[in-house]
């Protein structure tokens, strides 16, 4: 009879696979690991960081990147930056939104309302592409979910601008970024120390701004995150309690039978 330890076989196979993987995926550098407040199972966003991050988005990113799935009202909702209703109204009113047609059939502009979607910097993808040297600045609504590495990757790219290694030729309008896939990016380093003056007095270092805006983008991609964590915790506690009750009932019922369970 052949005796055979299958568990060992599975463990050996899987660990071999995990070992050979890095040998074949050396194109990208692992992003910097940041200890985000929203990462853990009960994680929440840092409210002040979200508000600062919105400021960085508005003053820096928004000149090229759209965020078309967000509405201004989202900025005041629970689990987000939680601006007051007055602040949300003021933020919305600071942009001119094209509306219409009116009863005369004419389009007109009016100040934004909280129910409006974030105004895009360009009327369409083509206009955006041509204005940015042929590279379309991606919409930022779900950008953090759309990249492997998520928030860590986003932060790393913002911090990853360097002089290209000796011998590397870069075309005009192409920059070296060691965390970007392929190490080339068509966006110039968007952040530099003091480019934003934070209204809450925090010192606007590059690292601080990169963290703040990444936090803001992480929220934009998953505005339900805090509620999801909260509901999930309750659901799992409830399920565990119910499981214990059902287990005890099962033991009781099966005790009538001469059989193991």
């Amino acid at each position: 009879m052949i005796r055979f330890n299958f568990k060992r076989l599975i463990i050996v196979t899987l660990s071999t696979l995990i070992f050979i993987k890095p040998l074949f995926s050396a194109e990208t550098i692992d992003p910097i690991k940041v200890n985000w407040s929203f990462k853990e199972l009960t994680g929440k966003f840092d409210r002040a960081s979200l508000q600062r991050g919105f400021q960085v988005y508005k003053e820096v990113c928004a000149s090229c990147h759209s965020m078309q799935y967000l509405s201004y009202r989202n900025l005041g909702e629970a689990g987000g930056p939680e601006f007051t209703q007055e602040e949300v109204k003021a933020i919305a009113a600071s942009v001119e939104i094209e509306d219409g047609p009116d009863s005369q059939g004419e389009m007109f502009t009016r100040p934004g309302k909280p129910s409006d979607k974030f105004k895009s910097p360009y009327p369409n993808v083509q206009a955006s592409t041509v204005a940015n040297g042929g590279a379309y600045p991606p919409d930022m609504s779900v950008l953090v979910k759309a990249r492997p590495g998520g928030a860590d990757y986003m932060y790393s790219v913002l911090m990853g601008y360097e002089e290209p290694p000796a011998g590397m030729k870069l075309d005009d309008g192409v920059y070296y970024n060691k965390y970007m896939i392929g190490q080339k990016i068509k966006m110039a380093s968007p952040l530099s120390d003091g480019i934003v003056e934070y209204s809450d007095g925090t010192e606007a270092t590059m690292d601080q701004m990169a963290k703040d805006v990444t936090t803001f983008l992480a929220w934009a991609a998953e505005p339900e995150l805090e509620e999801r964590h909260r509901v999930g915790f309750k659901v799992i506690v409830y399920l565990i309690l119910l499981t214990i009750l059902v287990y005890l009932s099962m033991k009781k019922i099966w005790s009538r039978i001469d059989s193991e369970i």
Partner: peptide, 9 residues
Amino acid sequence: IIFSGFVFF
């Protein structure tokens, strides 16, 4: 419970 772990976390 495992299912919920994926959905919520």
